[in-house]
């Protein structure tokens, strides 16, 4: 049961959240301008690093806000954002 810090509500149990996978994946401004390969990469391919990972969570059972966090995928520690 991870302890996840919602930027709006504070630290809460993992069960209150849903996971959103990699952060910082920008929706292409003009999908039609992309090749099939580029579009396929946008839809299906996400980073999957071992170590620090910028990811998205949403406080589903709380304020319902999405936020970004950096968590280490080996230790599960969240990096404190100052």
């Amino acid at each position: 049961m991870l302890l996840i810090r919602c930027p709006w509500c504070g630290p809460r149990n993992e069960v209150e959240f849903s996971y959103g996978g990699a952060a910082d994946v920008v929706y292409p401004p003009d999908p039609d301008a992309l090749s099939d390969a580029e579009w396929g990469e946008y839809v299906f391919v996400r980073d999957n690093p071992r170590g620090p990972f910028a990811e998205r969570w949403v406080h589903t059972a709380g304020c319902r806000r999405w936020f970004r966090a950096v968590r280490n995928t080996v230790t599960h520690e969240f990096r404190e954002e100052s």
Binding site: S18, G20, V26, Y27, V58, R64, R65, W66
Partner: peptide, 11 residues
């Protein structure tokens, strides 16, 4: 609802 909010908030 999740889908709507995700696109709204994150994109």
């Amino acid at each position: 609802l999740d889908h709507f909010e995700e696109w709204l908030q994150t994109e």
